[in-house]
Design a protein around this nucleic acid. Structure first.
Lengths: 188, 188
DNA sequence: GTCTATAATTCGATAGAC
DNA sequence: GTCTATCGAATTATAGAC
């Protein structure tokens, strides 16, 4: 076998581990997800996980490296901003809720301090600046934080807790009903 | 020692275990909280926990037996309802966030199916009827569910994730800013 | 009622053969 | 690069002495 082929298979294994890790962390959270289960999902040996990622913590760090891909909120007309934001996240989660890094992170951040720290970091580096640019307001950070609470609460009820009266509502209905609430927090 | 004295000490131990269990489940969630740690907090032997509560699952069930103590929302003037609800939960959590059964349950429900089921049950038996009586609306359950999402999201951001821009806001400010969002979801 | 001792698993992590 | 074998620690749970 050539070195090139080995490197290729190695990177494939590496990617398979990461995909399996994302699925497990998303389904079980940090403490409950085991390296053994992740390895089994990836059809490789548990020791390979250690070889590629060192330890469980570093594997988790690799799995939650996330970009919210927020649109340029400053370019969105102010009166459409709530709908745009709510729909952005819902569409993202609706595609594959079990594989989204934000839900993955949320499931772990509730009991794991490092994950919680990562979550706070995402808010400060991505959410807060995006709304800051759109709001032009001295209290933008505080209001953006409350918007984040509402969006995370929606994810919580729909995807993690699966409250029937939330999961039963179509995306369009959710946007119609939730966007005004986002607006209410944003406007003074 | 008399039988009566033994029963008394027994019930004290039982209560001590439950208190320690609530604190541990609240701080760590179901999977991370261990019977050993709970026993250590209660200054008793781990086997006593098993003796009194059978197993970890039953102990958890005893710890999360909760009454939201929601006020009679039908008696609250409609335009004050959002403020009353937001303040009710904030005051409850602000008192002792680490010992509140709802936060305890939330921390576990994210990764534990039984806890999630319990959470859904609380919504359907306590939250939904309370709002149903106040709203008198065919879509009351759906709107009440979204309000629950908002409130749980607030708890998430303030107490579990501890987002700085949320923890920094006084209760009164939170009520002022969040109540309009609740109202926006409630009114058609 | 309380505790010691331990069974039976399961976990993360390591060492080393191939 | 991959796997076998295993260590050491931690967990839930049980059995039985006092």
């Amino acid at each position: 076998m050539t070195e090139k082929a080995q490197r290729s298979r190695g990177s494939q294994t590496r990617a398979a581990i990461l995909a399996a890790a994302r699925a497990r962390f998303a389904a079980d959270g940090y403490e409950k997800a085991t390296i053994r289960a992740i390895a089994a999902d990836a059809h490789i040996d548990p020791s390979m996980v250690m070889r590629y990622y060192g330890n469980k913590e570093q594997l988790f760090a690799a799995a939650v490296d996330i970009d919210l891909e927020l649109p340029d909120l400053a370019a969105v007309p102010a009166d459409e901003l709530p709908q745009v934001v709510v729909r952005h996240f819902l569409q993202r989660w609706e595609g594959d809720a079990a594989d989204d890094a934000l839900l993955l992170l949320l499931r772990s951040a509730v009991t794991n301090q490092k994950a919680a720290e990562h979550m706070r970091s995402i808010f400060m580096k991505q959410v807060s600046p995006a709304f800051g640019a759109a709001l032009d307001d001295r209290e933008a950070a505080e209001r953006a934080a409350l918007v984040s609470c509402q969006l995370l609460g929606l994810a919580l009820g729909r995807y993690l807790l699966a409250i029937p009266a939330v999961t039963s509502q179509p995306v369009d209905t959710l946007v119609d009903r939730y966007a005004p609430a986002i607006l209410a927090v944003l406007e003074r």
